[in-house]
Computed example of a mutant assay.
Amino acid sequence: MLGGNLKLTTVFGIEIKVNVSWVFIAALLSWALAKGYFPVLHEGLQQIDYWSMSIIAVLGLFASILLHELAHSIVARAFGLEIKSITLWLLGGMAEMRDEPPTPKAEFLMAIAGPAASISLAGLFYLTGVALGSGGSAALIGLVASYLAKLNLVLAIFNLAPAFPLDGGRVARAAIWSATGNYQRATDIASIMGSIFGLGLIALGLISLLTGMGLSSLWLVILGLFIRFAADASRAQAQAKHTLAGERVSDIMTANPICVSPDIPVAHLIEHYMYKYPFEFFPVVDNGQLVGSVSLHEVKRVPPGERGAIPVHQITRPLTDDHTIGIDASAAQALAQMQATGQSLLMVTRGQAIVGVIAMRDILRLVTLKTTLANS
Results as ranks from 00 to 15, higher is better:
Arg317Ala: 14
Leu335Thr: 02
Gly93Phe: 06
Pro262Ala: 11
Leu220Trp: 10
Thr371Ile: 05
Leu81Ser: 10
Ile325Tyr: 02
Gly4Met: 15
Gly60Lys: 02
Ile252Asn: 00
Leu121Ala: 01
Leu166Phe: 12
Met347Pro: 11
Gly133Phe: 11
Ile48Gln: 14
Ser64Leu: 09
Pro39Gln: 00
Leu45Pro: 05
Gly13Leu: 12
Ser261Lys: 04
Leu225Pro: 00
Thr371Val: 02
Gly351Pro: 07
Ile14Asp: 05
Phe12Asn: 13
Leu88Thr: 13
Ala179Trp: 12
Ala175Lys: 09
Asp99Leu: 01
Ser234Ala: 15
Pro257Lys: 04
Ala63Arg: 00
Ser330Ile: 00
Leu373Ile: 15
Gly356Arg: 08
Val171Pro: 01
His268Thr: 14
Ile65Tyr: 05
Ala245Gly: 03
Ser234Gly: 09
Phe12Arg: 13
Glu15Gln: 11
Ile55His: 08
Lys300Thr: 09
Gln352Trp: 12
Ala163Gln: 03
Asn152Lys: 07
Thr180Ser: 13
Lys84Gly: 02
Leu345Ala: 07
Gly80Lys: 06
Ile48Leu: 14
Asp188Gln: 11
Gly3Lys: 10
Met213Phe: 04
Val299Thr: 07
Asn287Arg: 14
Met193Pro: 03
Asp362Thr: 07
Lys84Glu: 07
Val312Thr: 10
Ser73Tyr: 05
Gly169Gln: 01
Ala106Glu: 03
Glu82Ala: 08
Pro304Gln: 07
Ile83Val: 15
Arg98Gln: 10
His323Lys: 10
Phe226Cys: 03
Ile315Trp: 04
Leu201Met: 15
Phe38His: 02
Ala240Gly: 06
Ile56Thr: 12
Ser134Asn: 14
Ala138Cys: 04
Gly92Glu: 04
Val75Tyr: 11
Arg235Glu: 09
Thr372His: 03
Ala139Met: 15
Ile264Trp: 02
Thr243Ala: 13
Ala233Val: 00
Ala95Asp: 07
Leu88Ile: 15
Gly212Met: 02
Leu148Arg: 03
Leu209His: 01
Asp49Gly: 12
Pro257Asn: 12
Ser178Leu: 11
Ala331Ile: 00
Ala329Val: 05
Ala336Lys: 02
